[in-house]
Computed example of a mutant assay.
Amino acid sequence: MAPFAEALRERVPSRDALLAEAKAQSARQRARLAAGGLSMLLLAGAVWMLDPAWRTEDIRTAVGERGTIRLADGSEAILNTGSHLRVESRLRSRRLELVRGEAGFSVAHASKPFIVRSQGVEVRDIGTVFTVRSDGRGVLVSVVEGTVEVSGRQTPVRRLETGQQVRAGREGIGATRRIDPDAVTAWQRGKLRFDGTPLGEAIVDIQRYRQAPVRLGEARLASLRLSGEYDTDAIESLIDLLPAILPVSLVRGGDGTVVIFGVR
């Protein structure tokens, strides 16, 4: 039996060998768990740094409509006529994109930065109330209260204080100008306010409140100046009033189109 016992001992591991193997397996398992935990931490860190949007919400207003929304952080956004705002839920920041139109923001203080983007322009809030308008002329940023930082893809950061405004776009950021905050926010009270505004620019504002086109029939009329405050709910009355306050005449089409000509 001795030879068979010796052969069996050679084939079956000893108690010490089994204990050593168990310890080795436990160490390998702990190493795998540690590596997995490290990988999860690195992944979580990468996600935190990238700050991806895990949910988006699109908010729109129709032509002639205004809307007010309260954001999850307590901030408030007021949308002007024909506007589209995209609200993004992110880990490290509060980000919104003004796809088109105009919006006013009253920002609640929080640890996460509040950022509004449009046409490659970024507006970073520093505790403030401000408006952003996005159209074919670029992005118009106006500060009603507090401070914001405005930057573009290839432009340095510009800081704006209360009562300041800039227009920004692909070409860069224009000159900072002074504005009347009450005039900038008149639309939030259902008003259009003009103060010696060129008619060409006023027509752009008027157009936003009606579906059918309104345009100048003669380029020279664009330099005429329009002043006064008017109700946005009575845009047609404003258009009808133009010949009484400017040397122009109107031609209305059956489809609602309005063409403005000069008086000869």
Rank of each mutant, 00 (worst) to 15 (best):
Arg32Lys: 14
Leu98Thr: 03
Glu236Met: 08
Val144Met: 12
Gly190Thr: 11
Asp16Met: 09
Trp48Phe: 07
Gln164Asn: 07
Ser134Trp: 06
Asp135Pro: 06
Arg225Trp: 00
Glu145Leu: 10
Val132Asn: 01
Glu171His: 05
Glu10Gln: 15
Leu216Asp: 04
Glu149Asp: 15
Arg208Ala: 11
Gln211Ser: 13
Thr257Pro: 01
Val107Cys: 07
Gly120Pro: 10
Leu241Ser: 10
Gly37Arg: 02
Gly256Ala: 07
Ser111Ala: 14
Val121Ile: 15
Glu236Gln: 14
Val123Glu: 09
Pro213Leu: 10
Ile179Ala: 01
Gly174Arg: 10
Ser223Lys: 12
Pro113Val: 01
Thr197Met: 14
Phe261His: 15
Leu18Gly: 07
Gly228Trp: 02
Arg55Ala: 12
Arg133Cys: 07
Asp205Gly: 00
Val258Ala: 03
Leu216Ile: 08
Leu98Glu: 06
Asp180Cys: 05
Gly152His: 01
Ile235Lys: 04
Leu85Cys: 03
Ile206Arg: 02
Glu88Asp: 10
Gly136Ala: 14
Glu218Asp: 10
Arg66Met: 11
Gly45Ala: 01
Gly190Ser: 05
Arg264Pro: 15
Thr185Met: 13
Asp195Pro: 03
Val184Pro: 00
Gln164Asp: 07
Gly217Gln: 06
Ala22Leu: 14
His109Thr: 14
Val47Ala: 00
Glu161Ala: 14
Lys112Leu: 04
Glu161Leu: 13
Asp180Val: 08
Asp58Val: 15
Asp73Leu: 03
Glu21Gly: 00
Asp135Tyr: 10
Asn80Gly: 11
Arg178Gly: 11
Arg86Lys: 13
Ala234Arg: 14
Asp182Ala: 15
Pro181Ser: 07
Val204Thr: 12
Pro181Cys: 04
Ser134Arg: 13
Arg70Trp: 09
Arg189Val: 01
Asp16Lys: 11
Pro13Gln: 08
Val184Asp: 03
Arg117Gly: 00
Gly190Gln: 05
Val47Arg: 00
Val166Thr: 04
Phe114Glu: 01
Arg158Gln: 13
Leu246Cys: 05
Val144His: 06
Glu229Lys: 00
Asp16Val: 12
Leu160Cys: 08
Val204Ala: 12
Arg100Pro: 09
Ile260Met: 06
Asp255Tyr: 04
Pro113Trp: 00
Gly190Arg: 05
Ala234Val: 01
Arg225Thr: 08
Gly138Ser: 07
Leu38Ala: 15
Glu145Pro: 08
Leu224Gly: 02
Ala103Ser: 13
Leu19Glu: 11
Gly127Ile: 10
Ser26Thr: 10
Thr131Glu: 09
Val258Asp: 03
Arg177Glu: 14
Val166Leu: 04
Ala2Asp: 14
Glu57Pro: 01
Arg210Cys: 07
Leu238Asn: 02
Gln29Thr: 15
Val251Asp: 08
Arg153Asp: 06
Arg32His: 09
Leu96Asp: 00
Arg264Trp: 08
Ser118Trp: 01
Arg252Leu: 12
Thr81Val: 02
Thr257Val: 03
Ala202Gly: 12
Val116Ser: 01
Pro3Lys: 09
Leu226Ala: 06
Ser237Arg: 15
Val132Phe: 02
Arg189Asn: 13
Thr185Gln: 11
Leu226Ser: 03
Arg95Asn: 05
Ala212Gly: 07
Arg94Ser: 01
Arg9His: 09
Glu97Met: 05
